[in-house]
Amino acid sequence: MTSAPGRASLAKDPHDVASMFDGVAGRYDLTNTVLSGGLDRYWRTATRRELQLRSGERVLDLAAGTGVSTVELAKSGAWCVATDFSKGMLSAGRQRRVPKVAGDATALPYADAAFDAATISFGLRNVVDPTAALRELARVTRPGGRLVVCEFSTPVWRPFQVVYLEYLMRALPWVAQRVSSNPAAYVYLAESIRAWPAQAALADILGAAGWAEVTWRNLTGGIVALHHGIRA
């Protein structure tokens, strides 16, 4: 059930979340750039570099939204496919010339070991069962393949953490009201960030889902963390 019109609840019913993202698709990229102060571009570049992609590799970009992250990954020369459960988001990115497939993160429409590498950016916390999604990513990635999870996390400096959380719950919805097509959705997104596990806890979840040699590094003081794993 939705907790407000156009806003999913933290119970993360897949239909509600997909509907919410369909509703924000038209201005999603613009809103993200404004809310992050342009840092979204830096985070996408950092994700591509962390994956260490090579020309000719096959790469899954899960929760790809409009495909802007997939275009960034494709700069490496790898073959990259955007996958998202929101058809509205994929449609909003139809001008981006990358393959696009609608799919559920917990039941991916791909064969075992189909990819050399996989990534999910700012989407894992919106999946109804993140552990199931990580297991699916392990299933479709070949042994020795790489995963990078780019996700909002916990700032490492306590004073900054307090300021950041205040921004999430107060300033973020206020800004979203002025630039987003569905401001209520950004209240849910702020709440989902606050409820998300910190860096070490997420690393444990990755390890339990079949990913080995899990490490992470913080970006922007821990606002975002890149978790890296190898398919066992």
Score class of each variant (00 low, 15 high):
E151D: 14
A203Q: 11
W211A: 01
G93E: 07
G210D: 11
F115Y: 10
P99W: 01
A171E: 07
V187S: 11
K100R: 15
A113L: 02
V140H: 07
R135D: 04
L165T: 05
A176H: 11
S181E: 10
G103L: 12
Q95G: 10
L168G: 06
A201P: 03
R139L: 09
R170A: 10
L165M: 05
A132T: 05
S180M: 14
V140M: 06
W174Y: 10
R94P: 07
T154A: 11
Y188R: 02
L202F: 14
T131S: 10
G103Q: 12
V156T: 12
P197C: 07
V179F: 05
S180C: 13
Y164P: 07
A118H: 03
A176W: 14
V163Y: 01
T131H: 01
Y164A: 10
I205H: 00
G144F: 09
G207A: 15
C150N: 11
P155E: 11
V98T: 05
N182I: 02
Y110S: 04
I193D: 13
Y186A: 00
P130E: 13
R142T: 15
V162F: 14
A114I: 01
Q95W: 14
D129W: 02
W196Q: 03
D112R: 09
V162Y: 13
M169Q: 13
P130V: 09
G123V: 02
P99C: 00
Y188S: 02
R139F: 09
F122C: 00
A185I: 08
T131Y: 00
T106Y: 06
I120T: 05
R158E: 15
W174G: 02
N126S: 05
V187F: 03
T141K: 08
R135P: 03
D104A: 05
R146G: 04
T131D: 09
L108N: 09
A198W: 09
G207Q: 15
A107R: 11
L189F: 15
E166V: 04
F152Y: 06
A113G: 05
A203P: 04
K100Y: 03
Q177K: 07
